[in-house]
């Protein structure tokens, strides 16, 4: 039967097949180059961009694939970061404890917040995810035991015995690279899997999916938890990079920026979220060299991206590819 041999439309449309490997090769070269020639500052900058990209990737799973616009995703980054910070504050520095605890905490938070938020649709969903993130933000602010709004300094990075040393900036950068790559591959597989197809179907036409017999909310909740957990992982890495955690990690500006990265990079392609995150971090870095008021430029830029930049960077690449 010929049916089994063709790649169906929506898989072909992703076109991540050819671009994504290039993105990662370029990234690996950049890390290598920064380490060899540019110095620690740039290695750290790239590391931060990779961590942010991980969070954006998590969000793209929700927004791009499942069509669920979460405006509170920084909350999960914050939970991951706080888990590391709080455990460290209590003298528990082993990564073997810190990391699983952090991931389970962000997964659990995502399960609760997701279960509540997914009772609603559309604008309600946007506002409710935002509201829950604010709730966690204020909760973190009132944790006077852990620094309150001043935040919490982490004196030691997660300790993995002798296996990897996060204190070494080069090791840390490559660890982030490997994690980003693994998560990307896993989510790309997920996107093309049966599960991913259900998410895309529900984004297309939820009513139809229900009439086919899918308990749509259950699938979305699983996606929400996966996404929250990945964001939590980004938080774990971020806390280790900055050796600091503060409520600001969860502020709604951070959530809005994550959303901006996803759209800037091109929704739904996954590698686009990575590109968007890098574009954002590098743009911020560049603009803030010229002026402390870099948001004066970034704000209007974001408006323009939304109004005229259909498909974001990934869309641009796809169009360029077609011209060739």
């Amino acid at each position: 039967m010929r049916a089994a041999t063709r790649a169906p439309v929506s898989v072909r449309k992703l076109e991540g097949g050819s671009v994504a490997p290039l993105v990662f090769v370029a990234l690996a070269l950049a890390v290598l180059g920064a380490d060899l020639w540019a110095g620690p500052y740039y290695v750290k900058l790239l590391t931060r961009a990779m961590i942010v990209a991980l969070a954006a990737l998590a969000l793209d799973l929700l927004v791009g694939l499942a069509g669920l616009v979460s405006l509170g995703h920084a909350a999960f980054v914050g939970i991951g970061a706080y888990a590391v910070g709080i455990l460290a504050e209590h003298g528990i520095t082993s990564g073997w404890i810190q990391w699983p605890v952090a991931l389970v905490a962000s997964a659990a938070a995502a399960a609760v917040i997701g279960a509540l938020s997914l009772r609603t649709r559309g604008v309600h969903f946007i506002m409710i995810t935002l509201a829950f993130a604010q709730m966690l933000y204020f909760a973190a602010n009132s944790l006077s035991r852990y620094g309150g709004d001043d935040g919490l300094t982490i004196w030691n990075r997660s300790d993995f015995g002798g296996i990897v040393s996060l204190a070494d900036r080069r090791t840390f950068a490559w660890l982030c690279f490997v994690l980003l790559l693994s998560v990307y591959v896993a989510l790309a597989r997920l996107s093309a899997s049966r599960f991913g197809r259900v998410l895309r179907g529900a984004k297309d036409n939820e009513r139809r999916m229900a009439a086919l017999g899918f308990a749509v909310t259950r699938f979305r909740l699983v996606a929400f938890v996966i996404s929250g957990t990945v964001a939590g992982l980004a938080g774990v890495l971020l806390a280790n990079l900055t050796e600091f955690v503060a409520p600001a990690y969860m502020s709604w500006h951070r959530s809005g920026e994550l959303l901006a990265m996803v759209v800037l990079g091109g929704m739904g392609s996954l590698y686009g979220a990575i590109l968007g995150a890098f574009a954002f971090v590098l743009l911020e870095e560049l603009l803030s060299r010229f002026t402390t008021h870099w948001a004066l430029l970034f704000g209007p830029f974001l408006v323009l991206v939304v109004l005229v930049g259909r498909g974001g960077i990934a869309g641009l690449l796809a169009r360029l590819g077609r011209i060739r």
Partner: peptide, 23 residues
């Protein structure tokens, strides 16, 4: 139609194997 078949099969929590091609 394939996703409708998938609904009947009741095996949609599969995250790794591509849904297409899948005879």
């Amino acid at each position: 139609v394939a996703i409708a078949v998938q609904a009947r099969e009741g095996s949609s929590f599969r995250f790794w194997k591509p849904a297409s091609p899948d005879p």
